[in-house]
Design a protein around this nucleic acid. Structure first.
Length: 954
RNA sequence: GGGCGGUUAGCUCAGUUGGUUAGAGCGCCUGCCUUACAAGCAGGAAGUCCGGGGUUCGAGUCCCUGACCGCCCACCA
């Protein structure tokens, strides 16, 4: 047995151990795939006249970049399994396939992690200084970052590792900068003081999306504000306001009431004293105030509440920020300066009570925003930030998804229900706060001038203010939201903006230009596979930024890029969430996280992939159940043992000079018209399952694909075909060598094709066995580069029908044997009553019936002998001739049950047939079918009645 | 406050445009170490398709309604 180079399997072909051990082969193949660069997709030749390449369709997926700090969890494995199945499937179908991997620098997450580290070393980032800290993060990234990609390699994800990116790579940073400058120049980026969500723990602004709301049982404090007279003195009257955050009253600038609120009409134009702060504030009228909430009077704190901010704008009120970056009361907070917000709250309430100004405390359930990252309660707070004016981008992003007048969509979202969610969100989008007060990230390319106070935004670092020429300018300290750079990935990974203009030419800033061949070949990408949770964070941003910037790049023929070609991907497939076996969300704090690598070590990658694929029905979350994985490990073992059986026979055949021609393998197996039934049948089944699997994958029905393969391989190939083919594999002296060779050829060919069919879902075992089938000398370096089975035009229906008849006869015989208590090993004669035209089918395949039913003789009779207990189907009656004491009670029960079943069908059918209108309105084939069924049921019922009557009393 | 999804066998889930006896895996029961596989083979039991109404010749499937579970969005202090 010759072993070829590195491509051979880790195990000697044809000498497989009895039980499949995935750990024995998986590391080897995972490493082989990476080392051999099997999944690298080179930049296509730029020559447009290269027809062969043009005719090849591309299939491109961008991997949602995991955080560089991340570890692989079951959700990743699921997402990667789905993507990898599609990628491998397309690759085997001959498409030009590219799956691009990378990691995200994940601003807050990474900075937090490294900060924790240096704190444990007794220092802080403030002490280190910005440059040193950022260098430290890079160092961390170099040493520990992207562990998740190593895990992906182990799991066999067939990505192009040569194209791996990091969102802070120089070439992607260039894109970020270009995008920022362009949006700024287009007037779509502005800087200003607005209410933003502030995380006091991370000490940065966060976007609306990064706030998660939790229901919280809080209180509604009612506070009495004294009404002032014209002279500024208290009149003795009070206006009672209600608030959930009393500490913000330090920044109150007014109290608002509804202009038509009859309770307060007399207070119009009056002023109030702000308790604790010794300030006078006006009463303002605003229709936004709802009369039936709280007391109908609301304190106005523009610096700490978005509604109040808007109200303050309307009424030209000042804003008083009373908190610092860590949510402690600042110098505007009078006596409370320096207190934490909750300490301040407590003290303020106490003080108010002491002053007799606390009118009441009511329990109040409301939603409180928390930082998505660290779960700290978010403080809405006035602060100066950078924003993207989102509407123009959103308009395009809506057009990209909304069906046009012809119903065409530039981007198809699957499942379709998410299209509505997306459009709803995009239609109500707010400007995007893109600045973060962090050090780790893309620093905003803006420079402040201390002289003229204007801002200079430029692609290349400026040395002087663009407005007054001062050289005292200093760069903005904020960095960009992580999603700004990841939102650009679809264009930036393929070379934008360096591909603008003629290739080879330097740009205005002197940067070298890149070839646009990648962009032409791979943009728009084909598909995005992702979870619902980042639909808005990432998917929406990619659509907005992709549609916006890709129009820079004209089509290869020079024409302007239409919307349909400017989208970042043509389809978005939103997968389900993986939960634990009890449908609980997996989380570290709950301790129910299933580590995919651990499970993989126990059951094998293939079994886990198969589990995930088989449960991936759209719209339903996956309750990851290890019992399923055990089942699919058994499936892998089944395949393994089928291979052992096959190799055993190949070796035995070789001893007498029978060899399977490798040329017979690799395509779609066919069976000669005169081939034995099981050969024609299994070939037909293979074609049928190939059609099913291809159709399923076309529609992201991983579950249907997986189940179809499972049914075929186990239910058809192993349970029936292998058992039958044993009849033909005769290696004895004087046996029909041609028959043996033909049987062996079909066996090997169907098995080889089955491995290819299976390969996208179970890449490891299929790779291992495929190399073994070719005895270590396969036609390609990997099964992943072989062709995917495609169903032929015609499927041998006659073989399917005949086999179904033979199978049902065998099943009835086995059941009868069991009922009569026939010993497993006993060979028994059977009597068969069957219509003449089907008798030949059984006669011709008597050997199959005899072997699988352990039948010694098939006797065709016109009537089953009296006294034999028989089973009846629409096609035949069958009885097993076997001595036994009849279990009359059991037999009576069975027949009674049968009769009841038939009666039900008959009643049902007659009921329908007799209903007025049925025969007139129902389509003829339904009516015919029903009549036929009724006939059959009636016949079978009558037979069963006769049998019941014939039973001896007992 | 809006919107979406789910409810089918003990468990986890399929069930295409309504159409003839509602399926699978696991689990369960019975018998088998049958020469590839006990991670196996063979046979079997098991379902008011959440409740109620409607449309239809015909409903697990379509419409209305109620219950329960879950998710998303939302500025009522």
């Amino acid at each position: 047995m010759q072993l070829i180079g590195d491509a051979h399997s880790t195990l000697m072909p044809h000498e497989l151990p009895k039980a499949y051990d995935p750990t024995a082969i998986e590391d080897h193949w995972a490493e082989y795939w990476v080392r051999e660069n099997l999944f690298a997709q080179a930049t296509p030749s730029a020559a447009p006249q290269d027809q062969s390449q043009d005719s090849q369709s591309s299939f491109t997926i961008l991997l949602p970049p995991p955080n560089v700090t991340g570890n692989l969890h079951m959700g990743h494995m699921f997402e990667h399994a789905e993507s990898d199945i599609l990628i491998r499937w397309h690759r085997m179908r001959g498409d030009r396939v590219l799956w691009v991997p990378g990691t995200d620098h994940a601003g807050i997450a990474t900075q937090m992690l490294v900060e924790r580290q240096i704190v444990s070393e007794g220092t802080t980032r403030q002490k280190m200084g910005r440059a040193a800290f950022v260098e430290r993060v890079w160092e961390w990234r170099r040493h520990y970052g992207g562990a998740i990609l190593g895990q992906m390699k182990r799991l066999g994800a067939s990505v192009d590792w040569q194209r791996e990116y990091f969102t802070m790579d120089e070439r992607l940073s260039v894109a970020v900068r270009e995008a920022f400058v362009r949006l700024y120049e287009q007037g779509l980026i502005y800087r200003g003081a607005y209410i933003v969500n502030w995380c006091p723990r991370c000490q940065t602004a966060i976007s609306d999306l990064e706030v998660v709301y939790d229901e919280h049982k809080g209180h509604l404090w009612e506070i009495r504000y004294p009404v002032h007279g014209e002279d500024g003195r208290e009149t003795g009257e009070y206006l009672t306001i209600a608030t959930t955050r009393p500490e913000t009253m330090l920044g109150d600038v007014a109290v608002a009431i509804h202009p038509e609120d009859e309770r307060y009409l007399h207070l119009h134009g009056k002023k109030l004293g702000l308790p604790l702060m010794d300030r006078e504030i006006p009463i303002v009228l605003d229709e936004w105030v709802s009369r039936d909430f709280g007391t109908g009077a609301v304190k106005v704190t523009p610096a700490h509440d978005p509604n109040d901010f808007a109200l303050g704008e309307r009424h030209h009120l000042p804003s008083i920020n009373v908190m610092d970056d860590s949510a402690h009361i600042n110098e505007n907070g009078g006596a409370y300066t320096g207190l934490d917000r909750y300490a301040a709250r407590k003290k303020i309430v106490e003080d108010l009570e002491a002053l007799g100004l606390l009118a009441g405390i009511k329990d109040h359930v409301h939603n409180v925003g928390h930082c998505d990252r660290c779960k700290t309660v978010v403080e809405p707070r006035l602060s100066t930030q950078w924003f993207v004016k989102i509407q123009p981008l959103a308009d395009k992003a809506i057009a990209a998804v909304k069906p046009d007048v012809q119903g065409n969509k530039a981007i198809r979202i699957v499942p379709e229900q998410y299209e509505k969610v997306y459009l709803e969100w995009m239609g109500n989008i707010h400007d995007w706060c893109i600045s973060r007060q962090l050090w780790w990230g893309h620093r905003i390319p803006a420079w402040h001038c201390p002289v003229c106070h204007k801002i200079t935004v430029a692609k290349a670092d400026p040395t002087a203010c663009a407005h007054c020429g001062s050289d005292k300018i200093s760069q903005e300290t904020d960095v960009l939201d992580t999603w700004f750079s990841s939102g650009l990935l679809p264009v930036s990974v393929f070379g934008w903006p360096r591909i603008l203009g003629a290739p080879g030419l330097a740009s205005e800033t002197g940067e070298k230009m890149e070839s646009r061949a990648d962009f032409d070949a791979f943009y728009p990408t084909s598909l995005l596979v992702t979870g619902f949770d980042i639909l808005f964070f990432w998917v929406a941003r990619m659509i907005m930024l992709g549609c916006w910037f890709s129009t820079d790049v004209p089509m290869p023929d020079g024409s302007p890029r239409p919307l349909s070609e400017s989208v970042p991907f043509r389809e978005v497939y939103i997968h389900a969430l993986v939960r634990d076996a009890n449908r609980e969300k997996m989380s570290k704090t709950k301790g129910n996280v299933v580590d995919p690598i651990e499970i993989v070590k126990q059951y094998g990658t293939d079994a886990v992939r198969f589990t995930l694929a088989s449960m991936a029905s759209p719209g339903t979350d996956i309750a990851f159940n290890i019992a399923r994985t055990e089942g699919y490990r058994a499936f892998a073992n089944k395949i393994w043992n089928a291979a052992r059986f096959l190799f055993m026979n190949v070796d035995r055949a070789a001893e007498i000079g029978i060899r399977v021609d490798p040329a017979a393998l690799g395509g779609m197996p066919a069976a000669a018209a005169n081939a034995p039934l099981e050969a024609r049948w299994i070939v037909a089944e293979l074609h049928a399952v190939a059609a099913k699997v291809n159709a399923a994958l076309e529609n992201f029905r991983f579950d249907d694909a997986a189940n179809a393969i499972y049914q075929f391989f186990w239910g058809s190939f192993c349970d029936w075909y292998l058992e039958i083919v044993k009849l033909r594999l005769d290696f004895a002296e004087g046996a029909d060598k041609e028959q043996t060779k033909a049987a062996l050829t079909t066996l090997v060919a169907v098995f080889e094709a089955s491995l290819r069919l299976l390969s996208p879902v179970m890449p490891f075992i299929s790779e291992e066995l495929w190399h073994a089938v070719y005895d270590g000398n396969p036609p390609a370096k990997s099964i992943a580069l072989a062709s995917y089975p495609q169903a032929g035009a015609a499927i041998d229906q006659a073989a399917l029908d005949t086999m179904a008849l033979v199978q049902s006869l065998i099943v009835e015989v086995r059941a009868l044997r069991k009922e009569m208590g026939a010993e497993e090993k006993a060979q028994v004669p059977i009597e068969v009553r069957i219509d003449l035209h089907r008798m030949a089918d059984i006669e011709a395949n008597k050997g199959i019936v005899e072997r699988l039913g352990r039948v010694s003789e098939v006797r065709f009779v016109e009537q089953i002998a009296a006294g034999l207990s028989k089973h009846s189907t629409a096609n035949f009656d069958v009885a097993v001739v076997y001595e036994r004491t009849i279990d009359v009670a059991a037999e009576r029960e069975r027949l009674t049950k049968d009769i009841a079943k038939y009666e039900k069908i008959i009643a049902n059918g007659e009921g329908q047939l007799n209903k007025p209108g049925f025969t007139a309105k129902a389509p003829p084939h339904i009516v015919e079918g029903l009549k036929k069924q009724l006939d059959e049921a009636t016949r079978l019922r009558d037979k069963a009645r006769g049998d019941l009557d014939a039973l001896p009393p007992g």
